[in-house]
């Protein structure tokens, strides 16, 4: 059926208005929807605008934070540079003072030595007593200067370098002991060296540094042992076998001992135990710190056993070879 026949038919008066009505509905619906669509768009646009505002704000905050950060970074770089300059200045100060102190100290020491040996004329027993005290004080001061210099060298890494050579440890121990026979003798302390019967293999080590470590231990042992005591330096090969390749050294004294309170701090830089201070008021508190530093640089270990009033034994273990 064509459209023409349909319009001409009897149902036309009903169909046409119904059709127009239907179109009206469709258009109405369409515009209704269009209106809500537009309002949705407006809403969304508003929302986006707020979001953009927020983003812009966040962006500004971020820029501000970045600026603050880079100024902090600048401050940090500056602070770091100042620290390094300060460290250098400190190092230079210690180095210059210690080096400069050595000249006048040598002058004092040499003068005392000449007086003591009677090279500047005969001296009385009383004069000798005072001169001996002068010699001791000067020696202490020289030791402090040397300790400070050793500590200072750690800062620039120089002290980390070991000059390794094969060291005859028995000979080195004997050499160190020989240096202390006279100070031990003046306190009537019996200083002895005990070593295994057989020859020991050489150890790869920095001879001068190991010597400093041993000197510090023997010096302490004599210093903190009362008159007529006993100090024994022992070299042991008990850790020398097919599994272990270590030499153990110990320095045992019959001295004042270290109180349990002080024991954990004994290797700390500048720490001095109360017992030590009462026996020997002057001292840098650097000796044992340096011992530990030297032995650990050799991949060895150091520890002690001590009973207050009975004595202390320091143990050192050194590997035969350095990696």
């Amino acid at each position: 059926m064509s459209l023409e026949t349909l319009l001409n038919s009897a149902v036309a008066p009903v169909l046409v208005p119904a059709f127009l009505l239907a179109i009206g509905f469709v258009l109405g619906w369409f515009f209704q929807n269009k209106k809500s669509y537009v309002s949705a768009l407006i809403h969304e646009a508003k929302f986006k605008a707020t979001q953009i505002d927020k983003l812009e704000k966040a962006n500004q905050d971020l820029a501000a934070t970045t600026r603050a950060l880079s100024s902090k970074e600048f401050e940090l770089i500056n602070a770091n540079r100042r620290l390094r300059e300060l460290e250098n200045a400190k190092s230079k100060f210690v180095s210059v003072t210690t080096h400069q102190l050595r000249t006048p100290l040598a002058g004092i020491k040499w003068t005392f030595n000449m007086l003591q040996a009677g090279q500047l004329g005969v001296i009385s027993a009383e004069q000798k007593e005072f001169i001996d005290k002068g010699v001791d004080s000067t020696q202490k001061m020289i030791q402090i200067v040397n300790d400070l210099l050793h500590i200072d060298l750690q800062g620039d890494g120089t002290a980390d370098l070991l000059t390794l050579e094969p060291v005859d440890i028995s000979a080195l121990v004997e050499e160190v002991a020989a240096e202390f026979f006279s100070p031990a003798g003046s306190k009537k302390i019996n200083l002895t060296v005990a070593k295994p019967a057989g020859a020991l293999p050489p150890i790869m080590a920095d001879r001068s540094k190991i010597k400093i470590a041993l000197e510090n231990l023997v010096d302490n042992a004599i210093k903190y042992t009362p008159i007529a005591g006993q100090v024994t330096v022992t070299i042991s090969d008990k850790n020398l076998n097919s599994v272990n390749h270590n030499i153990e050294l110990s320095v045992r004294d019959s001295g004042i001992g270290i109180s349990p309170n002080d024991q954990p701090k004994i290797f700390q830089k500048f720490f001095r135990s109360t017992g030590a201070v009462s026996v020997e008021p002057d001292g840098s508190g650097l000796g044992l710190y340096i011992v530990k530093d030297i032995i650990e640089k050799h991949h060895g270990s150091v520890w002690f056993e001590s009973t207050i009033g009975q004595g202390t034994t320091f143990y050192l273990v050194l590997p035969l070879k350095q990696k």
Binding site: L101, K109, N146, L153, T158, T163
Partner: peptide, 29 residues
């Protein structure tokens, strides 16, 4: 000398020194 750090000793050795003593660590004897 007052010096006596490794590099000082090495430097003197390189030029040809026969021995090296550090002031205050030795006596006139």
């Amino acid at each position: 000398s007052n010096l006596g750090q490794r590099e000082d000793i090495e430097k003197a050795k390189a030029i040809g020194v026969n021995d090296f003593l550090i002031k205050a660590n030795f006596t006139l004897d």
